[in-house]
Design a protein around this nucleic acid. Structure first.
Length: 443
RNA sequence: UCCUGAGUAGCUCAAUGGCAGAGCAAUCGGCUGUUAACCGAUGGGUUGAAGGUUCGAGUCCCUCCUCAGGAGCCA
């Protein structure tokens, strides 16, 4: 009977068959230990020469790392047995090689980043990468479950668009039968159209930024979920976001204990991630940073923390603000000048807008960015003109303000940054199966 | 794009301007409880590329390439 390693505890004393790959092997002469993985877990299979035919033992002795194999044997409980879930091993009765692997490049030793990224197609088999990508899958499922269960409709937005937006240098341009087209940076403008039909919608897909960013939290191609809600204020938005993000984190904590343990994530800081989240106005955050700058004695840190009202936060600022709290923190009412043209100005204070970013703890920075959108046709037209774009290019978008416009709000959450934070990873590149970075297009 | 650092065996790294080395991996042998096992043996090199200084360059100088870390920009 073919079984999955994750269910192995239910088969104690029974003969089972596993179909998988050889992860690693150690031996002691007449006794060999084969670590076998099958996609659901990892288990130790034991070959004892006296119990086996010469032929089968010889296979066990010679089979190289990452060969595909089918192993049959009896499940037994043993405290010494490694694996996940551990505590059980297979006493090998028969062993069949499906394909004998050539010399496998990734050995159970240390490797450099470049080598591992060059071998990403093989690196995804490593237990640490397996655990991270399983957590990623759970994060995505939690995102969709929460939204689907709270009245949101998934409405897909296009990846190819004719609209250059306000910052065409960050877009990937391609030839669309003779006219320029661009890879989507956001589905938000389409979300706003869809929201008028469904009330609460979300788009979920890959987005593309041709920024020459080279940091631990940037990818050229990354996944983003973008909810957009009719009749939502900034306060409604924050209340929704904190429930949403808490659900994602708590779901991973509950359902991915094994994976979190495998990557040795200290989950104590994640336990705190429950609504409500602290909220701080941009004005106050700037004051907080100025005070921190004044208090610090480290000249380098002083320079990094320096900022003037009206500028956007850099990553040192985000980290410094987030460090003051034990859970994600909302920073709201950013200067209008540093945010997108469609964000609603604060009544009586045009210089700031109804925007909010959510900063993750532990230095992971901005994981969501959102706002109330301008819903008045005249004001939005004026803002489009202000940024130097022909309103004709935004005709359909402006149209939305002519036919039953309503106050509304929405945000985008970066999947990879969220996974990096939940996993406690030093770099975002491990949170996506095949990272696209400034100088990385292969494999 | 800017700043800093690195590039030597399949991998991770050593080598004062003076014979190119180790551990792991591979191959062969030994070992009945291994957890990145251990012990013995064997094979393995255009020192990122081109140029220069020198009796002599992995090492010093110049240019370029690649990668990493940070900044800016952002999710």
């Amino acid at each position: 009977m073919t079984v999955l390693i994750e269910n192995i505890a239910g088969y104690e004393g029974q003969e089972v068959t596993l179909k998988g790959w050889l992860y690693n092997k150690t031996g002691k002469g007449k006794l060999l230990f084969l670590k076998v993985r099958d996609g659901s877990g990892l288990i130790q299979c034991v070959a004892f020469q006296a119990d086996l035919s010469e032929e089968v033992f010889d296979i066990a002795k010679r089979i190289p790392q990452e060969s595909s194999l089918i192993v049959t044997g009896v499940v037994r409980k043993d405290e010494r047995a490694p694996g996940f879930p551990g505590g059980y091993e297979i006493g090998i009765k028969n062993l069949e090689i499906v394909q004998m692997a050539e010399d496998y490049p990734i050995t159970p030793k240390e490797h450099g980043v470049e080598f591992l990224m060059d071998n990403r197609h093989l690196w995804v088999r490593s237990s640490r990468q397996w655990a991270i990508l399983r957590i990623r899958a759970t994060v995505i499922k939690a995102i969709r479950d929460w939204l689907d269960n709270h009245g949101y409709t998934l409405v897909d937005t296009p990846i190819l668009s004719s609209n250059a937006g306000e910052n065409s240098t960050d877009l990937f341009e391609l030839d669309y039968f003779g006219t320029p087209a661009y890879l989507a940076q956001t589905g938000q403008l389409y979300n706003e159209a869809n929201m008028m039909s469904f009330g609460k919608v979300y788009a979920f897909g890959p987005t593309f930024r041709a920024e020459k960013s080279k940091t631990r939290r940037h990818l050229i191609e990354f996944w983003m979920v973008e909810p957009e809600m009719a009749y939502f204020s900034l306060e409604d938005l924050m209340a929704m976001e904190e429930e949403f993000v808490s659900y994602i984190v708590q779901t991973v904590l509950e359902t991915r204990k094994l994976e979190l343990a495998l990557i040795e994530r200290d989950t104590t800081k994640l336990q705190n991630v429950k609504a409500p989240f602290p909220r701080i106005a941009y004005d106050d955050a700037v004051e907080m940073l100025k005070q921190l700058e004044a208090e610090t004695t480290d000249a380098e840190q002083k320079q990094l923390l320096h900022m003037e009202w009206g500028t956007d936060f850099g990553s040192p600022h985000e980290t410094a603000v987030a460090e003051r709290f034990d859970r994600p923190v909302f920073v709201y009412h950013y200067p209008t000048a540093v945010k997108a043209f469609y964000m609603q100005p604060v009544a009586g204070r045009k210089e700031v807008c109804r925007s909010v970013d959510l900063l993750a703890p532990e230095g992971y920075g901005e994981i969501t960015g959102g706002s109330e959108r301008i819903y008045d046709h005249a004001l939005l037209t004026e803002r489009v003109k202000e940024i130097g774009i022909n309103p004709e290019n935004y005709r359909w978008y402006l149209d939305l303000r002519r036919y039953g416009s309503v106050p509304h709000a929405g945000f985008g959450l970066g999947v990879e940054r969220t996974v990096a934070w939940i996993c406690g990873l030093p770099h975002i590149r491990e949170t996506i199966p095949y990272a696209r970075m400034l100088h990385r297009l292969n494999p």
